[in-house]
Structures are given as structure tokens and as C-alpha cells.
Design a protein around this nucleic acid. Sequence first.
DNA 1: CGATTCACCGATAGTACTATCGGTGAAAAA
DNA 2: TTTTTCACCGATAGTACTATCGGTGAATCG
Lengths: 241, 241
Amino acid sequence: MTSTPLSRSEAKDLTRRRLIRAAFAILDEEGEAGLTTVKVSKAAGIAQSSFYVHFKDRQELLRALGEQAGERLRGAMREARHRAREVPGDKERHREAFRIPLEAICRHPALFRLGLRARHDPSSPLQEFAVETAAAYRAHLVADLASFGFPTERESDRRRLEMIADGIGALTNAMAIGHIDGRYPDLEEAVDVLVAFSYGYLRLLRKDSSAWSGNPPSTPSDAPPAEVCPEPGESSKKGNL
Amino acid sequence: MTSTPLSRSEAKDLTRRRLIRAAFAILDEEGEAGLTTVKVSKAAGIAQSSFYVHFKDRQELLRALGEQAGERLRGAMREARHRAREVPGDKERHREAFRIPLEAICRHPALFRLGLRARHDPSSPLQEFAVETAAAYRAHLVADLASFGFPTERESDRRRLEMIADGIGALTNAMAIGHIDGRYPDLEEAVDVLVAFSYGYLRLLRKDSSAWSGNPPSTPSDAPPAEVCPEPGESSKKGNL
DNA sequence: CGATTCACCGATAGTACTATCGGTGAAAAA
DNA sequence: TTTTTCACCGATAGTACTATCGGTGAATCG
């Protein structure tokens, strides 16, 4: 029991953090439909009406959740980039480029799931942000792949690169979900599979250009696959069909 | 205007179909949160209270949506399997094996999105079914891959096969979404990318066994990637983190 | 110390939804 | 034709949620 009496502002901040923590938990367990001021407040141990001391309305809570998720994601990306630079040896660096985003995802499984869900949910205020984050991740992978000799002259080259980046992200997400769900307990096996798939698109490089040795982009690592954040406001309906 | 007066039961059936059609549209536009008896009934052109003439409650509507989605999915799978058998030539059959599920998905984009969303949404009554359908699709791909010489003796072999199947599904989904969203307008380019990735895991086959010629499982086609259906009741919460 | 601030409380107005009920008229059965 | 059935209607009870308001006491300030 560390009972420093806490100043008023410290106490308020603590309560706010409790609210956000509770909100993440509910979001993860029940999805966005379950995220009511009643439940969040109760879970945080305050009266429902006191919710409005900390947030203007329900939307502002969601915005806060988004910002926090984005912050954590960027932190994980930074760290991943840093780590990838320090790995010795081509082959091991190749593996590391796939292992790092996997680990980054598995460090925040709830956050990851949240982003994955929001990305396909037009009712989620986090959808727009999740979609944009996914696009940003693809763009980063594209830059990495291009810097390793994949052709980018023609429009079709660039589109193909975009598709490959998309595929790498999807594969990484699938392996991460499998690991989180307990179906693939050994993360190294997941890395094996990602490496195996990677030899597929690397063939394209060998065929088109020739100045290359056999390992992949130094840091496809960079962003944990595109899943996590928000920063909503309005979810842009996307109409299909 | 074709005005056969319609018998009573025909009229009722028509109304029911209108309700289901409206429900799918709302689900696709607003997600599950927007699926209320008020909106569905209004969109179908009947009074809210009349909703209960056709469905016992809201859950029963969701169950019906699930059954219908499942039916369509199974139909698409059957057709895909049938088509794949009739393609001549190894290389073209290889491409077809990837093209068929892509086309099956793109024929029902709303359904596909719905399944993709439900799969990650614990609040969705369709989650359990979506997850099970995904697992069934993986199992099918695993059987196909095994029949083409991938080793399955050891537990780790089987797990690796499962992971590869998972990856193929994820890649197919990613390409399909990209196409539906308009980012990859040419479906043949998407097939190109899937084929490119496939050379990655096919290396494993060439290495381990040797009796093989260079084209992939005849029908990874089989199920359009694991996305579509429901058949809920209760969504089994999956707790992670 | 006395005055002020403010995080929190309970109560409640207002809104949106689910589900039920009795009534109605046209189709179907007799 | 007469009777019965039933798909649909409007009204409404009941529930769950959002957001506001005035009150309270402890921390903070003068």
C-alpha cells in the first residue's frame, strides 16, 4: 500500500487513466457496441455522470483511445527500426525484419485486434484512422522494397510493389493473430513461414534487376502491420457492392 | 409492371426477403450497431412492429442472415471447385487456382466484408461462425497442399502446412479487398502477385520431397477465403492479452 | 484560518430501441 | 356468401443509454 495522499490533479489524472484502461478492456471484450459511459464509468469505479468530468462526450473518449493507440504504435515502430539496424549478418537480418513486427504486434494484442476490427467496421469512429495507418505502413514497405532494387519506373511497377507490401502486411497479421490465438505457439515458426513466402516475391527482384544478394528489405520491420490506431471524428463510409 | 396479384404466402415471403435484403445493406453500410428493427423495417417498407411477424426477435434475423450468407458461400465454393477441374495446362491451372477464389469474393463484396469484420468483432453474433468458416477453409487448403506432396508426418509439418494455408488465405483476402476498394483495378495483376508469393512456399516442397513438376494445389480455389458467414446464437468471447 | 475550487455524486430529462397488444381489412376457406 | 385466417398497422410499456444539473466535501489558495 503506497499511500502518498495524492494531489488533486494527480488523482484526477489517475481516474482518467482508469477510464481509458477500462475502455480498452471493454472494447477488446465486447467491441465498440459495448463501450457505453455506464460500463466504462462503472468499470473505472466512478459514477456515470462523473464520466463527463473527464471527457466532453463519448466521441472524445474514442478520440483519446485513438491517440493513445497511435502513440504506442509509433513507439513500437521507432523501437523496431532501431533494433533492426543492429542485427549482424544478412540471413539473420532477413529473419529479424519479419520477427520484429511480429513481436511488436504481440506486445499489444488488444490494440492490434482493435485496429484489425476497426479497419473493416464502417460504424467505428476508428475506421478512418485504421485505414490510413494501414496505408502508411504499406507506403513504408514500398519505400523499403524500392530501396532494395525493385523496379519503380512504370505505374504498373509501383502498383505491383504496393500489392506486395500489402501482402507482406497481411501475412504478418495472419501469423500474429495465429500466435496470439495460441495456434502457432512458436514465433520462430511463424518467422520461418514469412521467410518462405518472401522468397516468392524476391524472385521478381532477381529476375528484373540483378544487383542483389539474397536478403530482403532491411526493415520491413518498421511498422507493426498497419492495424492499430484511430483518431476519428467521423468514420468515412466506404460504400462497396 | 408485372402485376400478378400475389398470393398471401408469396407476399409474405417477398416481405421477408425485403427485410433480409435491407438488413444486409444496413450491415454493410453501418455495421452491426446500425442494425435495428426500426431501420430494417423502415428500409423494407413495413411498420417496425411488423418485423415480428417475420422474426421472433432481432437474434433470429441475425441467424437468418448467417444462414443465407453460409448458403451463398457454399454455393460459390462448389462452383469454384467445379471450374478448377476443367482448366487445361499446369501453369494456367496454377493461376486459376488463385483467380477463382478472388472472383468468388468479388462477386459478393458486401458479404465478404461482413465476414471479415465479424471475424474480429467479439460483439458480433456472427463471430463464431466466421471464425469456424475460416478454420474450415484453412483445413481444406491443408488437405490440398498435403495431396501435392507437402510432408505431414511430424506435428511440426502439419503446423507449418496450417500456417501456409493461413497465409494463402490472408494474401487472397488482402488482394480481394484491394480490388474491391479500387486500389488494384486489374484482377490479373492480383493473380500475378499471389502466384509470385506462392513460389515462396513451393520451394519448401521442392526441397523436402521431389516428385513434383511446378504447379500448385489444384484447388486452393475451393473456398473463397474464409470470410463470409454466420450462424450465431452466441458469440464466444475469445479473451486475449 | 476562512474562502474558493472542483472531482465526484445522485437525480433526472431526453432519446432510441425492443417487444407486445388489440384492431383492421383483404385473402383464403367453408 | 359467410366465416376464418393472418399480414400488417398504430400505440405503448419497458429498457438502456447519453448528457445535464445542483449539491457536497475535501483539497487548495488567500
